[in-house]
Design a protein around this nucleic acid. Sequence first.
DNA 1: ATTTAAGCGAGACGGTACGTCACGTCTTGTC
DNA 2: GACAAGACGTGACGTACCGTCTCGCTTAAAT
Lengths: 214, 214, 214, 214
Amino acid sequence: MCSSPTAKRTGRPRSADADRAILAATRAALAEQGWGRLTLGDVAARAGVAKTTLYRRWAGKNELVVDAVAALFEEQLELPDLGSLQADIQGVVLRFAELLNRPETRTALMAVIAEAAHDDALRLRIREAIVDRQKHLVVLGRKRAQQRGEIPPEDGAADSAAGPARDNLIFDVVAGAVVHRVMVSSEPVDEEWAGRLAVLLVVGLAGLHTAQDL
Amino acid sequence: MCSSPTAKRTGRPRSADADRAILAATRAALAEQGWGRLTLGDVAARAGVAKTTLYRRWAGKNELVVDAVAALFEEQLELPDLGSLQADIQGVVLRFAELLNRPETRTALMAVIAEAAHDDALRLRIREAIVDRQKHLVVLGRKRAQQRGEIPPEDGAADSAAGPARDNLIFDVVAGAVVHRVMVSSEPVDEEWAGRLAVLLVVGLAGLHTAQDL
Amino acid sequence: MCSSPTAKRTGRPRSADADRAILAATRAALAEQGWGRLTLGDVAARAGVAKTTLYRRWAGKNELVVDAVAALFEEQLELPDLGSLQADIQGVVLRFAELLNRPETRTALMAVIAEAAHDDALRLRIREAIVDRQKHLVVLGRKRAQQRGEIPPEDGAADSAAGPARDNLIFDVVAGAVVHRVMVSSEPVDEEWAGRLAVLLVVGLAGLHTAQDL
Amino acid sequence: MCSSPTAKRTGRPRSADADRAILAATRAALAEQGWGRLTLGDVAARAGVAKTTLYRRWAGKNELVVDAVAALFEEQLELPDLGSLQADIQGVVLRFAELLNRPETRTALMAVIAEAAHDDALRLRIREAIVDRQKHLVVLGRKRAQQRGEIPPEDGAADSAAGPARDNLIFDVVAGAVVHRVMVSSEPVDEEWAGRLAVLLVVGLAGLHTAQDL
DNA sequence: ATTTAAGCGAGACGGTACGTCACGTCTTGTC
DNA sequence: GACAAGACGTGACGTACCGTCTCGCTTAAAT
């Protein structure tokens, strides 16, 4: 950000351990106290680090927490290959729900989203660091389904916008439905519910392909 | 809540104006500053009321904001009758998105949901005050569609749980998808997107009915 | 103040019990909590009276407490006739010290004096209500001593100011020394100490009469 | 008090300027507003210091004001050598009265004494910080008078308690009389009054020496 | 081996908001 | 109209974190 990777820096280098300890402490504190009661003093104390060290690296709560949360989503999700689109969807839904049920993730994610509701820069950071990184799952799932012949291949130039639009819709529906079920309805995402959602999506998606121009 | 309706109350009664002014000021302040920067002192000042009056009636930020937000959802949503299930869904999605795009609603709703991520009592209050109140829209929509013959009537005792489960799934999908589109993806909920979602749901729902035991 | 004693007052007359209860409650509360922690709400509660009633009769803390304290000094002190000026002084000193050692008196008196340090009107009220009322003790003691022949009678016109000046000095010395001993030095006013003070005064007073023009 | 002088202290050291500024501001505010209207927020503002800094160093009003007042008495009083015991007493009385007439001293001293009326720990602090420090004036005055032959030297073991007892009596009488004259009687301590008091004391003191066992 | 520039812990600092408390005033309904 | 009850506006309280700022010490690269 402020220096090219090859820029030789003089003086004592920053401790990499500190970074890890701080991010871990942030996640732990966030899970326990929630965004509102999260204090940077507490994070510093948990990490065994001075507050100064913390402010030397992040500009404030937002930046720190987004980084801490992003790490959670870094490599957590992958698309299982279960033989059919419906099974794949059911599988990824269950994994996502499991992630959302861990207290650290649940608190952290909602906290940053809420904070982003009135902070455009933060919303952008979330999209880049967390959301966009997961969209490839949809793309991957569609390609597998097309290879299996479950859904038709892309037509090409004619309605070029429809494909990505469908991908985005699927993403919003899957992510939104799971989050809503877990966070708002407070009901479990079990195999049954995930199965129903998968059926809805597979059948509905076929309908979308049938309907022209959608 | 704290007194039977016939309980003779002595002393000066609480001002009803104050309640209204405080809730309105809370919504305004929340829209402008967001949850994190919302100060009860500011709310009091906007409402032309003393801080103590505010604390006399609500125990803290959470309680106040939930009450303020609940009022927003009180009578805002209704299901338009546009002639077909698909059109009805598209219509309600657009209305819901419009509501979510008003800054006060957007900030307020996400704030309380986030705070609820680690506060069971708050989550319960949200469900009672906001969520459950909207579920009737799904029930109403289903009944209309059944009357129109778009989807089959309930079978009765055999799979009695499938109907409500489908209703809940639909609710999570619609609400979740719209919220995710607006809050996370930061993309507009226009007629096109709403139409796609409606198609997905109508077709998918038919598939759910076809699939036995779902 | 606002009505002649014979003026027919309309409406419900003020309760005389309330007055007594309030003053007694004030003294009790003052003894327990001190001036700083004395709350009028507490006084009202102890007196079994509404705050309104209290404010209807006194303008504020100062007025109430001074009235409450004044009653303590109303008829508490008298000059014993023990046969000699020295014995009389010793006796009144012991009685005054006893009064000052009662917690209510001790707290109350110092509180109003301290408050008076920067409040001229209050200082005047104290002088009228408390101090001036006790000065007659000095005059009475002097007259007795003159009758006994222990000190010479007043000369008359020549040095007419010297007599009252001496009375005032004696008053300041006796009252001041006792208060200082009790409140500041925190040491007991016993017969020995009172005796020493009496000797000092009797002998010193004789010296004052001897010294011309004093 | 709380740390040995060689204790290595870590972290940023407390500002000595702040201490001085706070104590000075306290005295100024106290003189202007009196104890009752003295607000620590105002003190902090006058001192150009944050309220927290103030609370970091003193536990409350009492502690702060006693420290502030103690400094006033630190080196204010000394015994003039005017050639005779009577003149020395007259001199120190006038100086003490002058000190007491300064609004800051008058308010501050009475305030802490009043507060001490129901606070044993505070009374102890006052004695240590203010009163005991002035007693040496009495001892010094007595020694000078003994050197001049105005009063007889101490006898030694026989009545060893009488000497200190007389010193304490003199202290209570001088301090008490001046305070009472200024604070309660609200009359001036001029040369005439101080002279009378000095005569009373010198003559009375001789009487005390004459009376055996006193 | 020194130097040197930054990192680091500790904790004081100026702020802002908190939630509480008592003040003295006001509005009720009852006596 | 006095009274009990209690809500109200006001303003200080003492606390908790914020993000910044000294301190003196440590650490590793550059000399």
